[in-house]
Simulated scan of single mutants.
Amino acid sequence: MTAIDTTEEVDTTSEDVTTAENVADTEKSPSALRRRLSATRRALSSDRLRGRTLPVVAAVLMVAALTAAVTAYFTVYRDDRAIGTDDGREVVSAANDGTVAILSYSPASLDSDFAKAKSHLTGQFLSYYEEFTAKVVKPAAIDNGITTKATVVRSAVSKLEPDNAEVLAFVNQTTTSKTKPDPEQTSSSVRVSLQRVDGTWLISSFDPV
């Protein structure tokens, strides 16, 4: 039994060696060489493709970055350049004129005074002003003979953007009435918010500070 087992093992080893030799011979055949050559060509083509693709991708990214930079220049930088000293003067002038119009009126000219003030206003503040003057200011001014005149003694821009701005204004206001005919002067400060509407700066809010 032992001899038989040994013989079988030797035969199996011989078969394995023969199989390996056959494989080696097969790999040396013309068809096998052609397959290897074809695979090599495909690998080289893939390398060339990658070599060409990388510069193309880099070029595309460079163009995209340049486009973004140009867009940023004309949308952001140009907007900043547009906010110059002329805009600052326009904003301050609009805030001052509007402040004087809002705080100045007389019983003899209430309607025209209110109309003048409304020409400086916009948005919800315009709606509020119309309601407040009609229901509160006009009756009080007529009944008590109230006349008030405002002047802006000093003002400065605290915020300036292409279409929005804020101005801090210091105001003196002189008031007379039936019960107090002698002029009475008060001082106050207000934060005036403005919006550019069709090229004109209009007051959108008016808050004491």
Score class of each variant (00 low, 15 high):
2 T>V: 12
74 F>A: 08
111 D>Q: 13
197 V>D: 10
167 V>C: 03
100 V>Y: 00
197 V>M: 05
41 R>W: 06
205 S>Y: 02
41 R>Q: 08
195 Q>Y: 04
9 E>C: 07
177 S>N: 04
1 M>S: 14
142 I>S: 12
23 V>Y: 09
21 E>K: 12
170 F>E: 01
115 A>C: 03
167 V>Y: 00
77 Y>S: 14
79 D>G: 05
153 V>M: 07
50 R>N: 12
21 E>V: 13
2 T>Y: 07
10 V>S: 14
51 G>A: 11
168 L>R: 08
164 N>W: 03
153 V>P: 00
109 S>E: 11
69 A>L: 11
14 S>H: 09
63 V>R: 03
93 S>G: 09
6 T>V: 15
62 M>F: 10
191 R>G: 06
178 K>H: 07
37 L>A: 15
113 D>L: 02
95 A>C: 05
79 D>H: 03
130 E>H: 02
129 Y>K: 06
2 T>A: 15
38 S>I: 13
148 T>K: 02
203 I>Q: 01
176 T>G: 01
109 S>F: 04
92 V>F: 00
40 T>M: 09
70 V>S: 13
6 T>S: 14
59 A>F: 02
139 P>Y: 01
164 N>A: 14
146 I>Q: 03
50 R>A: 10
118 K>E: 15
185 Q>L: 11
190 V>A: 06
190 V>C: 02
187 S>R: 12
42 R>H: 10
106 S>P: 02
206 F>H: 01
73 Y>S: 11
133 T>H: 02
182 D>S: 14
138 K>A: 10
31 S>H: 07
161 E>W: 00
38 S>M: 09
47 D>Y: 08
106 S>Q: 08
48 R>Q: 09
30 P>F: 05
129 Y>V: 07
179 T>C: 01
2 T>C: 03
90 E>V: 02
118 K>S: 15
16 D>C: 08
180 K>M: 08
105 Y>M: 05
104 S>L: 05
130 E>S: 10
32 A>I: 01
172 N>Y: 03
45 S>M: 11
88 G>W: 01
209 V>N: 07
83 I>D: 06
181 P>Y: 01
87 D>I: 08
132 F>W: 08
83 I>V: 15
196 R>P: 01
181 P>R: 12
171 V>E: 00
166 E>M: 06
7 T>F: 11
120 H>R: 11
151 T>M: 06
137 V>E: 03
201 W>C: 04
156 A>H: 05
180 K>C: 03
60 V>I: 11
55 P>S: 06
69 A>N: 10
68 A>C: 06
58 A>P: 02
196 R>H: 05
51 G>I: 03
55 P>N: 06
91 V>I: 13
154 R>E: 09
26 T>Y: 07
150 A>H: 04
146 I>P: 00
77 Y>I: 12
118 K>W: 00
